[in-house]
Design a protein around this nucleic acid. Structure first.
Lengths: 143, 143
DNA sequence: ACAAAGTGTTAGGCATGCCTTACAATAATT
DNA sequence: AATTATTGTAAGGCATGCCTAACACTTTGT
């Protein structure tokens, strides 16, 4: 039991996340576009989409736009959410440049625990609500 | 070119890190011990140790204690350091329980960027130096 | 409509890392 | 020393995910 169940490998999470991002941005997305966005071959995309279809997370017919099923949207939202939390934390608390923040979020989102993610969320909110602190931190560390 | 160079896969990093931890704790470590610590089979350990020997990071003869070469110690220290930084951050800033902090650190240490790790270090130090903030944060969030 | 460009799939491979089974070698215990 | 327990290794497999090459199918543009 491994390619049948619900749980997504981090690879597939990347695919579904990218598909969701395109949907949000109102972009049409075909397999070849995915390949370009993820920097993988069309062959790899073909495999991955096959798995996602099997899992019932996307709808896809060759040469047409990829779309998410309801279940797919749910899954994607989870990952996307994680990604955003991490990225925001890296950027706004740690002052990491957007690109690097995104790249790291993209890797970490697949393995970090729910609990830590929640705490990071809380913490980031706190930090953004207390500019006194962040100003002081910035002063001390980026003179 | 992949099993020859210096760069360690995250799997091998786990092995070398565990070997280093044992060294620090002054424990003798044999292959079977490693298998138990890492929850993998002896066969997997055997393979991994073979790779580490090839890479010149450990010294090892069957039935004897595993030891690190100088280069191995260097590599191990890097990973270990990363691990500790992350764990400390999770525990002391986010208030994550030790076990969970360690488990997450163990996965994230392999993929996070140097730069973010540095910023996390700075931030954690700042946080520990400003108990006023941490007290306030704790009050607001763990009432 | 037809050629060129773009897209998708299949087949065959590579690398990681893990597993089980079966067997070999060494250590420990009696 | 002999038996038992521990430890190590080799072989054969599984799963992930990625690749190239070759081929097939569509879409586009002239």
């Amino acid at each position: 039991m491994s390619s049948n169940g619900k749980s997504l490998s981090s690879g597939l999470e990347d695919y579904i996340e990218t598909i969701y991002a395109a949907k949000i941005a109102d972009e049409d997305l075909k397999g070849a576009d995915l390949a370009r966005k993820l920097n993988v071959s069309r062959a790899s995309v073909s495999e991955a989409l096959g798995k996602l279809v099997t899992k019932g997370l996307i709808q896809y017919n060759s040469y047409e736009t990829i779309s998410l099923t309801q279940e797919g949207v749910q899954e994607a939202k989870k990952v996307y959410e994680k990604h955003n939390i991490l990225k925001l934390f890296f950027e706004s608390v740690l002052g990491i440049p957007s690109l690097e923040a995104g790249e790291n979020a993209c890797k970490i989102e697949h393995i970090i625990s729910e609990n830590i993610l929640n705490e990071i969320t809380k913490f980031t909110n706190f930090w953004l609500d207390h500019k006194e602190f962040s100003k002081m931190y910035t002063k001390k560390n980026k003179p």
